[in-house]
Design a protein around this nucleic acid. Structure first.
Lengths: 231, 231
DNA sequence: AAGCTAACTAACAAGTTAGTCAGTAAAAGA
DNA sequence: TCTTTTACTGACTAACTTGTTAGTTAGCTT
């Protein structure tokens, strides 16, 4: 396993959504009676879940507060407004990802291995931040991506484009459109998680979150993308 | 062009979003002073746009009414409730698609050609119903897909699975997991449209909706999926 | 132990939103 | 032409939502 995947070490064990909801990324120190940082983290967690479901407009501050155990006034005390809370929510996991991604030495890897690694990290991030992908989709659909640009996602995506361009120049990849290839790859990596509730109606028996299922999904995603790229 | 694509005849000309918003599928007869069917259609159009942006919970009936030129009370007169309106919105383009898909003779086509056709029809549907895909995503994210099962999408998806299974048995396709392959394909076909507002921040110059861009996207999607499937 | 301040609550004000209803006017029918 | 039905409006209510504020308490400092 590449070192940067260490951030998500044990992610396969987190696949069960109930476990996921309980564990999350371990940001919260042991709870004391009055702990501003812990309270802020709890609000962010609850807000991430609420925004993932309803987006910025649809989310209710009251519902967020209800999940945390503190009152709604705390949102305004700690974050100032619903909008500032939203900005904080959309930026927090992005920082995790951008940092982990910054550690990847994609530029020195063989293109095939680089693409493989990117897909693994992307899926690991979906698993360890099970609500975040949906927050970003709502962002695109209802805020025209105006807050997306604050997150720092642009740089990692451009690095993946560069990897594909390098692969094409080396004759390892076919002369595909790198931009479209990146879009396809992101589509593959995210649809499984975002559209799941609909797709469950088609295959009610399918297990989505067992470690084996995630493993199969990841391998299958890598296989399709690499087949599509390789010369 | 396959006959079932006739439903979307001229779709390449509709790619510009402004043209799209103006044309839509031509359901509305020439407007009279009082025309219940025309009013219902206008409400459905406006609601589709609003639900695409905010989902069921986030959408405001007042905003829907404002787009139509009739009062909010008309929504309740013609549809009874916000929920019934939503059901109507989610079912209308599904009927178009399921009908068009029903006309496809996938079972008698060579598997490769069948997959190619499915992708073309799916993308054509996104183009001719530019808001609908996002309505379905909101449905998954905030309603757990409870209304999705009313739409009849399940059957077309199962037919695509069958096509892939047939291709595998014929030795034309690799022994992939057909279910995951369908998920990947849907991811590729939908991400380009649903996440666009975010992706515009990465490539601000990219043209998404020119006929040429849609053509390139379609070819690129077909190439990746077929490369991923072919033995 | 007394005093201070950061963290927190309960209750409320101001503005929104789903849904209703009494009434009006355009058509269609007699 | 008069009546009935259908499409539609404006004004309303009850419930909900964001954000505020006055006051309370935990825990730290001295």
């Amino acid at each position: 396993m590449h070192p940067s995947l260490a951030l998500y070490a044990g992610w396969v064990d987190w696949c069960n959504p109930w476990i996921l909801l309980a564990t999350k990324v371990n940001r919260t120190p042991p709870r004391q009676t009055r702990d501003a940082e812990a309270t802020k983290a709890k609000i962010l967690d609850a807000a991430e879940e609420e925004f993932a479901k309803f987006g910025f407009n649809g989310a209710k501050t009251e519902a967020i507060a209800a999940k945390t155990g503190v009152t709604k006034a705390m949102i305004y005390y700690h974050f100032g407004s619903k909008e500032e809370l939203y900005k904080a929510v959309i930026q927090r996991p992005a920082e995790d990802f951008v940092n982990a991604f910054g550690d990847l030495e994609l530029e020195t890897m063989p293109p095939e291995e680089a693409v493989k690694t990117v897909i693994k990290v992307a899926i690991a991030h979906e698993i360890s931040h099970p609500h975040y992908g949906r927050v970003l989709l709502h962002e695109a659909m209802q805020n025209q991506g105006q807050y997306f640009k604050l997150t720092g996602w642009v740089n990692p995506i451009n690095r993946v484009i560069a990897v594909i361009e390098r692969g094409i120049q080396a004759g390892i990849f076919r002369p595909v459109d790198p931009w479209l290839a990146v879009n396809h790859t992101m589509g593959i990596c995210t649809f499984y998680f975002n559209a799941q509730a609909n797709m469950r109606n088609v295959q009610p028996e399918f297990e989505w979150f067992t470690p084996e299922a995630i493993e199969r999904f990841t391998e299958s995603a890598i296989a399709m993308v690499l087949a599509g790229l390789k010369a």
